[in-house]
Computed example of a mutant assay.
Amino acid sequence: MSPTIAIVGGGPCGLTLARLLECNGFDYVVYERDETDDASRGGGSLDLHSETGQLAIREGGLFDEFKKHARYDDTTFKITDQHGEILLDVGQGRDAPEIDRFLLRRIFLESIPKDKIRWGHAVTGNKLDEDGVPVLEFSNGSTASGFKLVVGADGAWSKVRPLINQAKPIYSGKYFVESRIYPSSPQYGALATKVGTGTLDALGPYQQMIVQKQGDSSYRIYYGFLAPEDFASNGTVDLSNGEAVRKLLLSKDFFGDWVEEMKDLIRHSDTFRSWALYSLPAESLDWKPVPGVTLIGDAAHVAVPFAGEGVNSAMKDALVLAKKIAEHRTGDGLERAVREYEQDMFPRGRDVITRSMKNGELLFNKEGPHAFIRALTDGSF
Rank of each mutant, 00 (worst) to 15 (best):
H370I: 04
A153T: 05
A303H: 07
I57D: 01
L109H: 04
K288D: 14
V290C: 12
K194G: 01
R267E: 12
F346V: 03
D154G: 03
L128I: 08
K263M: 15
T36G: 06
W157L: 06
I181Q: 03
E51A: 06
M315T: 05
L363R: 02
E361V: 01
K366W: 11
G152C: 06
P113W: 14
F77W: 13
P183F: 08
P169G: 00
G25A: 06
F66V: 15
F176L: 13
G297T: 08
E85L: 05
D257T: 13
R273G: 03
I373M: 12
K358A: 14
E260R: 13
V8T: 04
G141S: 07
E229I: 05
L55P: 00
Q343L: 14
R118P: 02
T271Q: 14
Y171H: 04
R220W: 05
G146M: 06
V290G: 08
D344K: 09
Q82E: 15
Y206K: 10
L15D: 00
P305V: 10
G43T: 03
P169Y: 02
A192T: 09
L128H: 10
I221A: 10
T294P: 08
H268E: 11
V151G: 01
D47I: 04
Q208H: 14
E22T: 01
S179A: 13
E65M: 03
V29T: 15
E51N: 10
N312M: 05
E243C: 00
G61T: 07
E260F: 07
F176Q: 02
G93Y: 12
D317G: 03
V150L: 07
A153Q: 01
G256I: 11
L265K: 02
L248W: 09
Q187C: 14
K288C: 08
F26Y: 08
V311T: 13
W287N: 14
V259Y: 00
K148A: 12
V320C: 07
T330G: 04
A6K: 01
P12M: 10
G25E: 11
R94T: 10
V195A: 01
G189R: 14
L362W: 12
S139L: 10
G44E: 11
L295N: 07
V177S: 01
Q82L: 10
I221E: 07
D129F: 05
P289C: 02
G215I: 03
L239K: 00
N24G: 07
H69R: 09
Y182W: 06
F66K: 10
D89V: 02
K366D: 13
L149S: 00
V195I: 15
L280A: 03
I7M: 10
T124D: 05
I5L: 07
G173A: 09
E32Q: 14
Y278T: 07
E51Q: 11
L362F: 12
D74Q: 06
A326S: 14
Q166Y: 04
T75V: 10
Q207Y: 00
K324F: 04
Y175K: 08
L88Q: 13
L46I: 15
Y223T: 03
D332N: 11
M315V: 07
S269E: 03
G235H: 11
T143M: 05
G146I: 08
V195N: 00
P162E: 04
V290F: 03
P228K: 09
F176E: 02
R220I: 05
N359P: 03
T16G: 02
H370R: 14
